[in-house]
């Protein structure tokens, strides 16, 4: 059996990579990729805790509740929606202002 902590370390690593990308990159699409990475890190955590922490039926040795998996499934669905809307925004900004650099998207600056 793989210890739970290994999964958590991997999740934290993936999340940190995503955070670095989201904070540091200039390109809006790269920032979006960073956010996807962060969501994936969170998902690994959710599934790992589901597998290791949830109620286990003593007789069949099966995990009887699926909360963690359902949660992760919804995270995937939300990530899909977020990517679709975010990329559509980026493309429409690009068509109007010919840039995808976040430094130059300053329409909202007072």
């Amino acid at each position: 059996m793989v210890p739970l902590s290994w999964y958590l370390v991997l999740a934290a690593f993936v999340f940190s990579c995503g955070l670095y990308g989201a904070l540091v990159r200039r390109n809006a699409i790269a920032v979006l990729m960073g956010i996807e990475l962060m969501l994936n890190g969170v998902n690994i955590n959710l599934v790992a805790f589901w597998r290791y922490g949830d109620i286990i039926d003593k007789a069949t040795q099966q995990v009887v509740r699926l909360d963690g998996q359902i949660f992760a499934l919804f995270v995937i669905a939300v990530a899909a929606a977020e990517a679709a809307v975010g990329l559509a925004l980026i493309i429409s900004i690009y068509r109007n202002r010919k840039t995808v650099s976040l430094d130059q998207m300053d329409l909202l600056k007072g």
Binding site: L73, I76, A77, A80, A81, A83, A84, A88
Partner: peptide, 11 residues
């Protein structure tokens, strides 16, 4: 975009 909607629906 349309594909993505139906893909999530399949899931």
């Amino acid at each position: 975009l349309i594909f993505l909607i139906f893909d999530v629906e399949v899931i």
